[in-house]
Design a protein around this nucleic acid. Structure first.
Lengths: 250, 250
DNA sequence: CTAGTGCACTGGTCGGACCAGTAGGCTACG
DNA sequence: CGTAGCCTACTGGTCCGACCAGTGCACTAG
């Protein structure tokens, strides 16, 4: 072996150590969501740094979604419960700078959603099944109420499925990617297609999926869900890229 | 309907608008990776804000992985190529504060990795297949060289597969989650198990997967990969949670 | 007892100052 | 003439002091 390998000592900036300490306190549970940090002026005493440094640290923590501050608040910054907001932000950035195609995003949803459905089919309780059924019923009712109600019910269905599947990571990622997909479609192709027929078809597909979940047939439910998502989104995807989506259909 | 619904005007802070502008410039391609931002003192003139405000904005941009600055650099902050670092950070946070279990993380990998393998089986070129085979060959050679070389080759295999699958989002997410899983295992259960047997078994599994990819049998390859990952990681997962992993095996 | 008014805080922003570092031009030496 | 070394003009990192617009709460006047 070679001699002792020294790591380059990266100059660790003051605000970074403030971030580390607060982060550690939050992630280890010393600080719980809803609790308050001391005020900036108090923090600068505790950390022996200037207020500028404290503020830069707070900005970083805020960008990571760990705390939030509000001007005039007599208490300090509030420790937030975890939200996927930071995850969402970085995925959105990813989608823009890496130029993720709609096809890739939809494909990602097909994979995760069908996995959640497969898990749900095997692990769901009767109560969770009822939730899913209720959501689909709301989708049907929303045919009269307009698209917002429809997609709200659709989201509720997929969230119920993801919850039943029991994997929080899958749940959060599908949620993040769904919102990105929805926004992409909304801003690029506002209502160009036959929404009504699409909604009716989507409801039929959801009902088929639920039936498969009810029977506990995970693979069937997963396959149906992939097909459903393909049928729903394929029209928005350039024809040249649909092939990679079909690669997920059996 | 009710009267016109006014949205509450959220007080938009100065540094936020600086962030927005720079972010927009980067994401829209006006600023490309490698290019430099003006210096802080120059930015405070352009944006008509104080240096504190500029610096807070830069901290946020840095936390999002978009820019990086180095003291003494005669140029301003450097625009970075996208790295999943921010994604990684928020997922790691997620894993800590939401207390994601190892089982959930492994399950997530089983889902995404098998999806990548299924896609690779259908879309791969001969060249990409050769890359995967070479990586497995390196894994076998690494039996003599130690664990680091082994896992490096393993990573190379999965990266080759993910590339062949063609979905960058799957590629990045598997990568991020893999590193989290590896770190979790490394710090919690350092080498407690029979590594040698595990490595040999893993190589066999990888070879089976490659064979299935070579034949173009995506579903088989995917199934094998889930089984392989289960066998590899199940020993680290508490027995009570293995059930949810088995739910993904057929 | 309540409605209104200050006051004592908060975070947001500003301007100026100093330091340690870097790069590149300039000078002085070989 | 070439090069080694210094010098200067920048950079980002940190600190300080100040002011403003908000907020919550206690106190007061009705």
């Amino acid at each position: 072996m070679s001699g002792p390998r020294f790591e380059p000592v990266r100059a660790v900036r003051a605000y970074e150590r403030v971030v580390e300490q607060v982060e550690e306190a939050i992630e280890s549970g010393v600080l719980s969501p809803g609790e308050r940090l001391p005020s900036e002026r108090e923090l600068m005493v505790q950390f022996s740094v200037s207020r500028s440094t404290v503020r830069e640290a707070l900005r970083v923590l805020q960008a990571r979604g760990l705390v939030q501050s509000r001007p005039g608040d007599p208490n300090g910054a509030e420790v937030l419960p975890f939200t996927p907001a930071a995850l969402h932000k970085s995925m959105t950035t990813l989608a823009r700078v890496e130029e993720l195609s709609l096809a890739e995003l939809v494909q990602f949803r097909m994979v995760l959603d069908s996995a959640a459905i497969l898990l749900a089919a095997r692990l769901r309780t009767d109560e969770q099944l009822a939730e899913m059924a209720a959501a689909v019923a709301r989708m049907r009712a929303a045919l009269e109420l307009g698209e917002d109600a429809f997609s709200a019910a659709d989201v509720a269905f997929h969230e119920a499925v993801a919850r039943a599947g029991g994997n929080k990571l899958i749940q959060i990622c599908t949620d993040v990617v769904r919102s990105i997909v929805v926004r992409l479609i909304a801003e690029k192709l506002a209502g160009a297609r036959d929404r009504d027929a699409l909604m009716r078809q989507s409801i039929r597909h959801h009902e088929e999926v639920i039936a498969a979940i009810r029977l506990g047939d995970g693979p069937l439910a997963a396959r149906l869900s992939r097909k459903a998502m393909y049928d729903y989104y394929a029209g928005y995807v350039p024809a040249a890229e649909r092939g990679v989506l079909r690669a997920l259909l059996d």
